[in-house]
Structure formats: C-alpha cells, structure tokens
C-alpha cells in the first residue's frame, strides 16, 4: 500500500463536527404498533401455554395459584410494554453527509455510528405488519462482523428506499440501481494497490 504522508494541519479537535449534538429523528409513530403486535403475539403464546398447563393440572389449581399464574405474567407483560414504550421514545437516527447514527437504549444508552465509506451493502427488510403500515427497516452491513451491523427500524418505506439509494450511491457512484452488484464490485478493488 502506498504510504501517503498524512498531512495534518493544525486541526482543532473541538472544531470537528460533533456526533453527540446532531439532532436525531424519532422513529415513525406507527412503528410502535409493530412492537405492540410482537408483544401481543408473545402474550398469546404465553397464555396459551398457561392454559394448556391449567388443563393438565386442573386438580392442583387453587385460587391462590391461579392469581399467581395469571397475575405474574400479566405484570411482566405490563412492564415489558412500559419499557418498550420508553425505549421507543429513546430511539433515534440521523444521516449525516458521511455517516449514519443510531441511538437507542434505556438502561444502557448506546450510539452506533457507521461511516458510509465502510458500508459493504445495504438491505431493506419489511415484516408482515410493517408492510401493512408502509414501514421498513434499513440495515447497513460492514466488514466488522455482525456486531457492527446497524439496523434502523420504523422508517417510512419511501424514505428507507431513498436512504438506501443515497448510501448505495455513496458506496459506489458507478452503480446506482443494482445494490447487489456493489457488494461484488467492492472486493477486487481492495487488493488493487499492492504495488
């Protein structure tokens, strides 16, 4: 690899753009319906399991155990719902000229930043409910392994497509439509400068 002398003019680090002050966009309000639906599915599974258990051990059920068996899961679900709501409000994203930022978490607040010139490819996902609501999830893949891939849920499909195209253009200005080809074309380049 050619060693470029790293020109380093006096650069005040405090003048650099700050990722922490970028105003973040909230996720689409509709997206909470998707979260709620997932919790609902979980609840249904949980209670069908409980009712199967009930039919099997019907003699051993007292009022007390009944209250515990139904009440405890209910409390858990209410807590899950509460935290989901809280977490939903905390989630936010931003796209800058050179990177994508995504912030989330209640107990641990984490911010992930992926520079566009490290994105390998972009994918759009749509679940069943998301499709009905016109929402989509965008996923940025990097070479840093699955831990460093970034998923931003709850975007309007039109927006997500726009963002995807924008990033695709940034990754590889030549190919704008076919994102799949980007993944393949990026690789040979990387070995091109051995001299």
């Amino acid at each position: 690899m050619q060693q470029q002398p790293f020109s380093n003019e006096p650069l005040s680090i405090s003048d650099l753009p700050k990722f922490e002050t970028v105003p973040l966009q909230p996720l689409q309000k509709k997206y909470f319906k998707v979260i709620a639906f997932n919790i609902l599915v979980f609840t249904i599974f949980l209670f069908s399991g409980i009712s199967i258990a009930y039919t099997m051990f019907i003699e051993e059920f007292t009022v007390m155990t009944g209250v515990v068996v139904v009440g405890f899961p209910l409390v858990v679900i209410v807590i899950i719902l509460f935290f989901a709501r809280l977490g939903f409000r905390k989630k936010g994203y931003a796209f800058r000229t050179h990177d994508a930022i995504y912030k989330s978490g209640i107990i641990v607040e984490s911010t992930t930043i992926i520079p566009f010139n490290r994105v390998q490819h972009v994918a759009l996902h749509q679940g069943f409910i998301s499709r009905k609501l016109g929402l989509a999830t965008i996923e940025l893949f990097t070479a840093g392994g699955s831990t460093s891939d970034l998923q931003i849920p709850g975007l309007l499909l039109a927006d997500a497509q726009k963002i995807k195209e924008l990033i695709a253009k940034k990754i590889n200005p030549a190919a704008t439509e076919n994102v799949v080809s980007i993944e393949e074309e990026n690789k040979p380049q990387s070995e091109a400068n051995d001299a």
Binding site: V108, I113, G144, L150
Partner: peptide
Amino acid sequence: QAIETHQFF
C-alpha cells in the same frame, strides 16, 4: 468499520 458508545443511565 463502526464505532459504538455506551453509557449506563
């Protein structure tokens, strides 16, 4: 490739 910051509340 990616940077992540974490902070407990």
